[in-house]
Simulated scan of single mutants.
Amino acid sequence: MHRKKILFLLPYPLHKAPSQRFRVENLLFLLDGKFEYELSTFLSEDDWKILYQPGHHVQKALGIARGFLRRAALVLFGSFRYDYIFIHREAAPLGPPVFEYILARILRKKYIFDFDDAIWIPNTSAQNKIASRLKCFWKIRPICRWAHRVSAGNDFLVNYAEHSGRKTPATRIPTVVNTETRYNRIKQHQEGRVVVGWTGSHSTLKFLEPLMPVIQRLQKECDIDFLVIADKKPDLPLSDWQFCPWNEQTEIEDLLKIDVGVMPLVHDAWSEGKCGFKLIQYLSLGIPAVANSVGVNKLIVEDGINGFLADDDDRWYLSLKQLITDASLRKRMGESGRAKMVAGYSISSQSEAFLGLFS
């Protein structure tokens, strides 16, 4: 029997970016025996290594150019071999949606568009300030409109896609973890020194800044450590804290060092587009969390059940102190969070929706 073929157009090298890992790479096993598929990444390993480093302008430009050439050759001369094209975030990081237009309007290919951030809103950092001028943020609307299917990580993103002029509904598929394999361990909460922790990428480190006065206050009153797991070491105004470089191989062990997870955000449209993945990671491992009540955080965190929602310094302080000083509360909330993640934010809970995109 002929199996349909899928081409995945991915922005990053494999095993590097959380969004791509958890929304695409970790779901591929669901296709085994049902579809044939191939992966194509825009950036090479070498290009990725220098992408967020200062300088290297010529090398970065050459890397982007090589990515465009590879993608153009594949779209123009290779896409005919596939029944579906799956595009995560965008077919190319810069410029207008040329490849999406060619696939949908000229070659009449069915492409599935998947995104988990409000990527139509400029979010410029010092590292990408120049490139952001070439991003063409407006292109996300037509990409959604032309797509055969759209997979979005939360209702805010689904609503954006459905107001793009497309004729069929978008599918809400939250970012998920495999609670049966990698995320099958549960934090054992005990008395003693407590670790408050945060995990994320360099682009979201800025959200830690407003939380620092609260952590400073808590460190004067409680026996706590503050742990940051990231791909870049921040400069924090704390006397006692630890940095753990993110590593895929030790990811679970590092997360399990955390007793209370935090996810600070600001109340704006860009934060509304976030899919709460930090919270999903914490709760899946039985770690209670404290987060701002913005966007999907309000759906993931049930205030007082599996964590707390906090929007000012006093609320952050009281919520964290309650969890820091009560191991039984951490255990109870962690168990509740774990159950919720298994029910709605695990691969098994979303496998049918994912496979339904290829129809």
Rank of each mutant, 00 (worst) to 15 (best):
L74Y: 05
K49Q: 14
Q59Y: 13
A61T: 06
F80G: 12
E100P: 08
F99Q: 03
F68K: 01
I87P: 03
V98R: 06
R66E: 08
W48E: 01
L94M: 09
G63L: 06
I85C: 08
R81N: 04
H88P: 09
S79Y: 04
F80P: 03
A61W: 11
K49V: 02
Y52D: 02
H57V: 15
E90D: 14
G67P: 02
Y52C: 12
A92S: 15
G78E: 03
G67Y: 02
L51V: 13
Q59E: 14
W48Q: 07
F86H: 07
R81Q: 11
G78I: 00
F99V: 07
D83E: 04
Q53F: 12
I85V: 14
F86P: 10
P54H: 00
L51H: 04
A61Q: 10
Y52T: 03
I85K: 04
I50M: 07
A65E: 13
I87F: 08
R71M: 13
I102D: 01
A73W: 06
L76V: 07
P97N: 03
V75I: 15
R71T: 14
L51E: 10
G63A: 12
F77G: 05
D47E: 15
Q53T: 15
L76H: 04
L74K: 00
V98F: 13
P93Y: 14
A61K: 08
P54Q: 09
Q59P: 00
R70L: 10
L94Y: 05
I87L: 04
L94K: 05
I87S: 02
P97T: 01
F77E: 05
Y52G: 12
K60L: 10
F68Q: 05
F86E: 02
F99N: 07
K60T: 06
R70W: 06
E90V: 08
E100N: 06
W48A: 05
R89L: 13
D47W: 02
L74I: 02
H88C: 11
V75T: 06
G67N: 03
H57Q: 14
I64K: 06
P54W: 10
A72Y: 00
I85W: 05
W48G: 07
D47P: 06
L69G: 08
L103P: 08
D83A: 05
G78Q: 03
H88Q: 12
K60E: 07
A72I: 04
A73E: 00
R81C: 02
P96S: 10
I85R: 00
G95S: 11
I50H: 02
F68E: 01
H56T: 01
P96Q: 04
P93M: 13
A92C: 05
P97D: 07
H56R: 15
F68M: 06
Q53E: 15
L76N: 00
F77A: 01
V75D: 05
F77L: 13
L62Y: 12
Y82C: 03
A92G: 09
V75R: 01
R81P: 10
P93C: 12
P96N: 07
Y82W: 07
Y82K: 07
D83N: 12
A92Y: 10
D47V: 00
G78T: 02
L103H: 08
Q53D: 13
R89V: 09
L62R: 11
S79A: 14
L51T: 14
F80V: 09
G67C: 10
L103I: 00
A72G: 14
I102G: 09
P54R: 11
